[in-house]
Every structure is written in structure tokens, then in C-alpha cells.
């Protein structure tokens, strides 16, 4: 298989990339790792007329902590996230479970976020940790909170000519922990169910902030806001997490498919929420 014909523009700067995208109009797409876009082009479900390759742009490959945030540049590969010392909690937990080792060597975290595949892992992690997406377009740079970014399956609120140049994930200042529990049929498959958990504890050991998001059980990655609200202010306990798990199971709208029945997936959501929150609390207590 091979893609339909397209023009390739190899951009050297972000400004050049945005300009090339403006010139290309609606038929233009940005290319980073290409681990989702190239297969889609080969299967002819995507057929851009122009690809703007951003891989040669200098300065987009850093993953580092700065001003209380984990900053991830547009060319940071999943494999870079796996080995980074700057990560924490749910980000560190999810990285090794994205795709497979070879795909992680090429695919980028920002590309995956921008792609908005409802079965993608990263957007759940970003929803749980309250991250911002940094976009640059013809009129400059802006920051979009992840909750306002994910708009639908394969759809974001990114403007037509905007490029995701980075992510800003707030690093908790106090005790915190996170997890990403993913059930997959085999490595490299989409999640059957995955749950991202994030907890911050105050000095008394009570939950000061909570994040919980689900992958592959809704039409989009889904933040379980009522469970988060329930958790805040409470002392971590098995009973509390079981209650949150019921809210997560209620928020899930899984479907019967080759990966399993809806009822079973809902049960996995319940179990993984309990286990994920317990793991996050455990990590936070030890931090």
C-alpha cells in the first residue's frame, strides 16, 4: 500500500510550517512522527494534498520542567517520554503503554494529542492532569486547556492553520501520585479499557486535587468530573475509591465489539478505577 500523491514541504521553522499550511489550505496536514497519519494515508482514509513535515524544525524536541510545568515539545517521541526523568505520575505510567516500542521511537506525544483518536492514551492522561495544549498559528501562539481541546473523535478545537508546538502539564508542588491502567489484547493494540488517575494530597493527607479520565469506553476521551469532585476534600480510602469507581462506570458508555462486551468493559472501568486511584494514593503517600 502507498498513499495517494501529495506535495511535501519540509519546514525548517515553526513560522515556515504555519505559512506552508496556510498556503496549502484545507488540503494541508502537518506531519510529525506519522505513526497514525501515514497508515491512514496508505489506507486512503486520509489523502492530504500537501504534507508539511515538521521533523527538521530545531528546538521542538525538549521534554523538561520549567515554571512548575512539564513542557513537552512537538517532536518529543513517546520513547523520549518513557526514559525522561522530568515526568511524573500518570504521564510516566502511561508512556510505556503507548503503542509498541518501534512506534514509540517515531510517534510523538503532541502528534497523538492533536490526532484526537478517542482510543488514544495521552488525552486521558492530559485530562486527568489538567494540561494545556500550546498551539501556534498565523496570528501567534495560544494556550488551550485540554478539556476545551478535545472536541470529538479525531476532532479538536485547533484552528485550521494551527500547529501544536507543545504541551504544558502542571507538576504538583506537594505530595502526588498517578497511574495509567490499560487493558489491551496485545501490545500495540488500542486499549480495550484504560483509566488515568491523578491525586494530590494536602498536609493532612486529604485529597487536595483529583483527576480521573477514561480511554476507549466513550466516543471521546472522557473526564469523570463528578468522581473528581467526590474525591476532593476526602481522606483516601477503599470505600471512597469504590464510590468513585461507580461514578466512572456510570460515565462509561462502552459498546459490544471484538474486544469484549459493554457490560464487561464497564466492569473493567470499575476495577481499574479502584486500583488506579489506590495506586495513585499509594504513590502520593510515599512521595
Amino acid at each position: 500500500m502507498f498513499p495517494s500523491r501529495f506535495d511535501l514541504v519540509v519546514a525548517q521553522t515553526v513560522a515556515e510550517a504555519v505559512e506552508a499550511k496556510v498556503d496549502a489550505g484545507e488540503g494541508g496536514r502537518f506531519l510529525a512522527g506519522g505513526q497514525s497519519l501515514i497508515p491512514m494515508m496508505k489506507m486512503r482514509v486520509a489523502f492530504p494534498e500537501t504534507l508539511v513535515d515538521i521533523n527538521r524544525i530545531a528546538g521542538l524536541d525538549a521534554i523538561e520542567r520549567s515554571n512548575g510545568h512539564l513542557q513537552v515539545g512537538a517532536l518529543v517521541r513517546h520513547a523520549d517520554v518513557v526514559v525522561s526523568d522530568a515526568t511524573f505520575g500518570a504521564v510516566a505510567a502511561a508512556a510505556p503503554w503507548v503503542a509498541d516500542p518501534l512506534v514509540r521511537n517515531r510517534g510523538t506525544m503532541c502528534g497523538s494529542v492533536a490526532h484526537c483518536d478517542p482510543e488514544g492514551d495521552w488525552n486521558s492522561v492530559l485530562l486527568a492532569t489538567g494540561a494545556d495544549v500550546i498551539a501556534q498559528g498565523p496570528s501567534g501562539e495560544r494556550s488551550i486547556s485540554i478539556a476545551n481541546f478535545v472536541d470529538g473523535a479525531f476532532t479538536s478545537t485547533l484552528g485550521e492553520d494551527e500547529l501544536v508546538v507543545g504541551l504544558r502539564i502542571p507538576v504538583p508542588s506537594g505530595r502526588s501520585g498517578g497511574s495509567y491502567l490499560k487493558l489491551e489484547r496485545k501490545i500495540g493494540d488500542y486499549a480495550t479499557v484504560a483509566v488515568a488517575s491523578h491525586l494530590e494530597l494536602d498536609d493532612s493527607g486529604a485529597i487536595a486535587a483529583a483527576g480521573l479520565a477514561l480511554t476507549s469506553v466513550n466516543p471521546i476521551n472522557t473526564k469523570v468530573a463528578d468522581a473528581e469532585a467526590l474525591l476532593v476534600g476526602q481522606q483516601p480510602s477503599e470505600e471512597l475509591f469504590a464510590e468513585a469507581a461507580e461514578l466512572a462506570a456510570a460515565a462509561a458508555e462502552p459498546r459490544d465489539d471484538v474486544r469484549g462486551t459493554a457490560a464487561w468493559k464497564r466492569q473493567v472501568v470499575r476495577t481499574y478505577t479502584k486500583r488506579g486511584l489506590a495506586a495513585a494514593a499509594q504513590q502520593a503517600k510515599g512521595s
Binding site: 511535501l8 519540509v10 506531519l31 513535515d53 521533523n55 516500542p101 518501534l102 517515531r106
Partner: peptide, 11 residues
């Protein structure tokens, strides 16, 4: 190591 079916020669 990368999957050469998912990399453009140009890349």
C-alpha cells in the same frame, strides 16, 4: 529501530 512501512523515504 523503526517500522519502514510507516516512514517516508523523504523523512
Amino acid at each position: 529501530p523503526v517500522k519502514a512501512c510507516t516512514v517516508l523515504a523523504a523523512q
